[in-house]
Simulated scan of single mutants.
Amino acid sequence: MTAYPGGDRWRWESRIFGGAYDEAPAHERPVYGALNFRRKPEGGAPRFGSAHFRLAAETLARTTFCYPDSFLEPSNFGVAARMGLIELALADRQDDLDDYIEAQVHGPVRPKCHVEALVLDPCYRGTAVEVAALRLGCPVEWHPGFRLRVEELLRHPGYRGQEYVDLGARIAVDGVLNPRIVADAARAGHHDPQAIKKVWHYLARFGAPCSVADDSESPAPTEGAVLDGLR
């Protein structure tokens, strides 16, 4: 999005990687994801969407990490062999949607070679999304699913704003929001995309499935945390 010369993403990467990507074409730039150190079934950084690729362990050797997100220009970095970021993240008190360790995968990420599974929301079972996913050449799995009832949405006007609560209530189907409903509203083009994104934040924050992990643990990347590719 802003990885063009002089753009924000280009500037952040130039700073972090010492100019290594300054002249690189788009397809050679890092692939962004998150270290799922809390082992959430819905992925390590659900603010970016309801689906994620769970990457193969071999990608850890060519992945760098930072905390917090690189757009905040952090000073804390790590690699799989030397990782102090999990302790920092566990000690921090971030909102659930900001509670992730950013990952930058260097080199290609191809579904047939570097992905253990594409993990989807169950609202896409039996849809064209599932059909397309099955063509990628990697296993498809399902997490428990995002689901938010309007009555719960109405309890949180201060999170992103009353206008986004009202919008979420309008686009809900039978009093419920799920990723497919939000995506359909985005594709329809009747609303500001940034407003729809805020509705997604509500769904991701207050409609997320319960985590199966024990947040009190602090595993190293090779001891249970999972690398998710996102964007």
Rank of each mutant, 00 (worst) to 15 (best):
Y164I: 05
V105N: 03
E13Q: 12
H190K: 12
M1G: 14
P209N: 05
L60T: 00
V131F: 11
R47L: 02
Y67D: 03
E152L: 12
A172Q: 04
C138D: 05
D69N: 14
R231T: 14
V131R: 15
Y124A: 07
R170V: 07
R47T: 03
L136P: 02
S211P: 08
L203G: 01
E23A: 14
I16H: 06
A186K: 06
Q162L: 15
L120Q: 04
I101N: 02
L55E: 00
P74M: 11
H27S: 10
G6H: 11
T59N: 10
T222K: 12
R135Y: 05
G43Y: 00
H143E: 09
D69I: 09
L230H: 07
V79C: 12
M83P: 00
A81N: 14
H114M: 09
H106M: 13
R170G: 03
D98Y: 07
G107C: 06
L85C: 02
G161L: 12
A51P: 00
L154P: 03
A56C: 13
A132V: 08
F146S: 00
I16S: 04
W12C: 10
P122M: 05
P68F: 10
D98M: 08
F17P: 00
I196H: 00
F71D: 15
Q194K: 08
Q162A: 15
I16D: 06
A34D: 07
A132S: 12
N36R: 02
F71A: 13
V129L: 06
L55S: 04
Q104R: 10
L167V: 07
P5H: 11
E130F: 13
I196N: 00
R180S: 02
